[in-house]
Design a protein around this nucleic acid. Structure first.
Lengths: 188, 188
DNA sequence: CTCATTTTTTAACATTTGTAAAATGTTGTC
DNA sequence: GACAACATTTTACAAATGTTAAAAAATGAG
């Protein structure tokens, strides 16, 4: 089990001791494509790690739905508002493919944070990396046009382009699907 | 000194023991309005806490400069890219008023992260709260028009509206200054 | 107070992106 | 392979925002 965890991107830097602590509380679950594993209107008691599959986090508005995050194999899936503020959040997480996930109760994670220095720093680094990535996206929206953002997305996330519906990618890039279609048409 | 630290928003939740660890390494500095305390092209060896004043983080582009964060009294000022990746970053931090700051070497902070569980979790929570705030802003850009974003900013940050130049607020909201002027004119 | 500098507003026009709806293409199931 | 469901593209038009430049207002130094 510990060897299995070490192969997952988000756990690679951890010591055996920490992996052992995780292993005690982790269980595997499988879900089909289309499953919404985290719902905005509920407090989600688990966090997940995607072992195989693709996920998206999205938020529902009146007439639209916007995707603001993609998760690939090895990424952690949190409902940040459940996780951080213990309140129902603004985010749903949907599996875009049949997936294998590990999950663990947040209550157990919090106990680990309060006992294990290495795990507390592991959680810190995850939040920091997400923060940098999100901040950059916010800045890119100002500096780069929609076409450039699309091209960089293609270059940086070739897997996602292949496997994710364009309507999700459009809202991730901050444009409508029509605009994304126009951008793509210009490069044919 | 410990009492002094406890009065600062970002430190209030910490125990005396942790405050003592911070106190050992903290020094006070004063800077004038206009000082750029963190520069994008340099690795910044300190982090700062703003005791009095207002700061903005901004990024330089070819023909523009966009402000993506405001700091008020009690907030922490990081160059996240220096802090997280030990590389020059994309962010400058400028003081918008004459300010009093505390600072501490990042190398000392990292030592504390590796020794003190409470401080590691303190760092984790700071990153998590910033992450939620940034993610919400990204989502708001999709769901809310520029006028609504402005009105909410006024409601939530009355101090900043009074004390910060509108050109900075415009880019923070993701519009040009001309657009912000039009929005303001519509509510007269 | 006055002048120079900077900030904010206004105007005219251009461009981008959005909206709605129809047409086309794709996928999966029986 | 035919159908239904869903995804993507296209078209025509509307709305929002950007660009540039100039005018007006506010700020700050001497």
């Amino acid at each position: 089990m510990i060897e299995q965890l070490r192969n997952i991107a988000v756990f690679t830097a951890l010591s055996d001791g920490s992996l052992y602590e995780f292993a005690k509380h982790i269980e595997y679950v499988k879900h089909q494509k289309g499953t919404i594993i985290i719902r905005a209107d509920k407090i989600e008691p688990h966090f997940y790690v995607l072992e195989r599959g693709i996920a998206r986090a999205y938020s529902d508005g009146e007439n639209q739905q916007i995707t603001f995050w993609f998760g690939q194999s090895g990424n952690v899936l949190f409902s940040f508002n459940s996780y951080i503020n213990n309140q129902p959040g603004y985010e749903n997480i949907e599996l875009l493919e049949d997936s294998i996930l590990m999950r663990m109760r947040l209550s157990n994670l919090f106990l680990l944070y309060d006992k294990h220095l290495e795990i507390a720093n592991w959680g810190r680094k995850i939040a920091e990396q997400e923060l940098i990535a999100t901040e950059r996206r916010l800045i890119d929206r100002a500096f780069k046009g929609a076409a450039e953002r699309y091209q960089e997305f293609v270059a940086q996330s070739p897997e996602l382009i292949k496997r994710v519906a364009l309507k999700h990618i459009a809202s991730y890039l901050g444009v409508t699907q029509v605009t994304l279609s126009r951008i793509r048409a210009a490069y044919k």
